[in-house]
Design a protein around this nucleic acid. Structure first.
Length: 503
RNA sequence: GUCCCCAUCGUCUAGCCUGGCCUAGGACACCGGCCUUUCACGCCGGCGACAGGGGUUCAAAUCCCCUUGGGGACGCCA
């Protein structure tokens, strides 16, 4: 055996295994991210497996949505996407092996009968667990049932001796133990012959050589069952790693049905999130850096990430419905805004370009002659923006003559002083005559004019700001005018006169 | 109801394993101040938590027990 093969045997292999029954949501993305990080960190393999054994609920749209979401987030996978259904025959084979080795048995109980028992137990408010009555069936009875064609499922025969416990190692929760008597004889094969998740998932993980099962803590309850399957099949179990769940601010599980689009990944894409900013936010939901850092480049995050620092307590996605300012978790917005403000301009540019194109604000020259202007302008305005969407909405006046006037701003900065009817055209003229249309030159003109007319520069500055941008907020005025450009500025100043009432 | 898990500011969390450096640190949000032509940014400051009760110990956020609260699982779903 050569060295490379030896190394491969020790190589970490992880997977993200969503079921294609819905959208990629925050919880799923976080699970995918943790797996991805662990693979990158260890030089391992990250594979994607679509668990589509529930054919009725699986949809192609959902598969595409998940793939698109992963790609957008930058969580690239090394193998797959595989479909769980590809190995269906192997799962059935495993079930049959369990039957023949006495680890499973045929159960002829009808679904209706079990449902009735379950309902009854619920009414009496006691726990329902299948009583294992079909364990006791004689060879004779089984043969008769088979001959009559009575449908049956395969159930795993859980060791029942009083002392028996099932143990598995969890990277987050440590050694987890469960008593055999607290585990019911779970179904591994449906009456139509199709395998169930608990079986398929374990068999596939083994087939795919998965070394670490990093998944949500909701999976912790059926892990003992899977540990039993590994043992009965003589397979080496992976190291489990159950990450705490992320709940809503009322501590309920996140779901699209309940919370709407705000929990889906595509929502963040559509609302101007940088994919890495979202990843950075998500990684901190249940994991922390030993040095207390919160912002990471992908390389830094991969370096810093470790399974041992995953938290045990659930975290809350702090989204309050109906708050227009905090339309998602405020900390997520903070991450996005900080990235927009501080990332290298060259890296930000493609996102802005896409946004401007989508909104019909892109000009051909931005890729050529005006490229430097564009970068400078982006840099000028980005400090106030929270999302990429802001470039086309709040930043519209830099790219188009069609922008809205904020009523309050007009009232406060333009309508309040009739003298502006005279000042603004004057300034427009000054701008027109400036030999160099630079921030310094513009400022000089403003200051001189203010002095001559014995008026506060602030009055002129604020009025001009609203005249050219429609708002009362924004970057320093002189730089702003330079960015907007002489012709537009002159035009806008003259147009604004209509907004100022006569004395 | 049964089994399992969890518990530090409003939220994300550090500290807990290996008790003392914790009058509990950081981040977001919020509130003040400075800067300033505005709004942001930045800087300075403020508000704000060890769920409760017992124990162990010279000493407990840290170890143990109980209570309470919360979550998960309990499908011929994944």
């Amino acid at each position: 055996m050569n060295q490379e093969t030896t190394m491969n045997q020790n190589q970490v292999r992880v997977r993200f295994a969503p079921s294609p029954t819905g959208y990629l949501h925050l919880g799923g993305a976080r699970t995918a991210l943790y797996n991805w990080l662990w693979a990158k960190k260890t030089g391992g393999v990250f594979l994607l497996r679509i668990e589509d054994t529930d054919a009725e609920r699986s949809t192609e749209d959902s598969v595409q949505e998940i793939l698109a979401g992963m790609t957008w987030l930058g969580l690239d996978w090394d193998e797959g996407p595989f479909f769980q259904s590809r190995n269906m025959d192997k799962h059935v084979e495993a079930a049959e092996r369990l039957l023949s080795t006495g680890h499973a048995y045929r159960c002829f109980c009808t679904k209706e009968d079990l449902d009735a028992q379950r309902k009854e137990a619920e009414a009496k408010r006691v726990a329902f667990m299948y009583d294992g009555r079909c364990r006791k069936l004689s060879e004779q009875q089984i043969r008769e049932n088979l001959e009559k064609g009575v449908p049956y499922v395969l159930r795993f025969l859980v060791p029942r001796d009083p002392q028996s416990t099932v143990v598995f190692e969890d990277a987050v929760f440590g050694r987890v133990e469960k008593k055999g008597r607290d585990i019911e004889d779970f179904v591994i094969l449906r009456s139509d012959g199709r395998p169930l998740y608990v079986l398929s998932n374990a068999v596939d993980d083994s087939l795919d050589g998965i070394t670490h099962v990093i998944r949500g803590a909701d999976g912790i309850a059926n892990t003992p069952k899977q540990a039993l399957i590994y043992r009965a099949l003589g397979l080496k179990p992976p190291l489990f790693c159950h990450m705490p769940l992320t709940l809503d601010n009322k501590k309920a599980k996140l779901s699209k049905r309940k919370h709407g689009e705000v929990v889906t990944i595509s929502y963040y894409r559509r609302h101007g999130f940088l994919p890495w900013a979202l990843c950075n936010f998500l990684v901190l939901l249940g994991w922390s850096d030993p040095d207390g850092r919160e912002f990471f480049s992908p390389e830094e995050m991969i370096e810093a990430f470790d399974l041992s620092r995953i938290n045990r307590a659930n975290s809350i996605f702090n989204y309050v419905p109906g708050d227009p300012k905090n339309w998602t978790d405020p900390k997520a917005i903070h991450f996005n805004a900080t990235y927009i403000r501080t990332m290298p301009l060259e890296e930000l540019l493609p996102y802005v370009r896409e946004e401007l194109k989508a909104e019909g604000l892109w000009k051909q020259s931005y890729a050529g002659a005006d490229r430097e202007w564009l970068l400078k302008t982006i840099d000028l305005i980005r400090a106030r923006f929270h999302t990429i969407k802001d470039f086309s909405s709040r930043g519209r006046c830099y790219f188009s003559e069609e922008f809205d006037f904020d009523e309050k701003a007009v009232k406060k900065n333009l309508a309040k002083d009739p003298r502006l009817r005279e000042y603004l055209p004057d300034i427009a003229g000054l701008m027109q005559d400036l030999s160099e249309f630079t921030a310094d030159a513009i400022e000089g003109a403003f200051r001189t004019y203010a002095e001559q007319r014995e008026v506060k520069a602030g009055l002129l500055i604020n009025a001009t700001r609203t005249a050219v941008s429609g708002t009362s907020v924004g970057p320093g005025l002189f730089e702003m005018l330079e960015a907007i450009g002489r012709d537009s500025v002159v035009q806008r100043l003259r147009n604004a006169v209509r907004l100022i009432p006569e004395a």
